[in-house]
Design a binder for these strands. Structure first.
Length: 95
DNA sequence: CTTCTAACA
DNA sequence: TGTTAGCA
């Protein structure tokens, strides 16, 4: 897709993503296994984190600090994503 | 870089 | 339950 907003495939390796978020690499893999995010993969199977993924990770840190567990954070993340989509559709109707 | 196992709070 | 260390 034509990616004007740009944050969808900003590419970082897991080491960089861990540094940028203050999380451990193992933790990032756990979050993926729990379904909090799904980073892209290289041909060799290495994770590729976009700026979008980093935003999700920072959100996750915030939600965990608020006392949610990973399952709860996952649900909030899903709802926020769905909400953002609805907002876009609403904007199309109101402009 | 990956997955997996085990230990700990 | 979530994180971390070590191994293959």
């Amino acid at each position: 897709m034509t990616d004007v907003s740009g944050d969808t495939h900003g590419v970082y390796g897991i080491t960089v993503a861990a540094e940028l978020t203050g999380l451990g690499e193992q933790t990032l893999r756990l979050y993926e296994r729990k379904g909090l995010l799904t980073p892209a993969r290289t041909a060799g199977g290495a994770r590729r984190y976009s700026d979008r993924d980093l935003t999700v990770l920072r959100r996750t840190v915030e939600l965990l600090a608020d006392g949610l567990n990973l399952a709860g954070a996952r649900r909030v993340l899903d709802l926020e994503a769905a909400n953002a989509l609805l907002r876009l559709r609403l904007a199309e109707l109101t402009d």
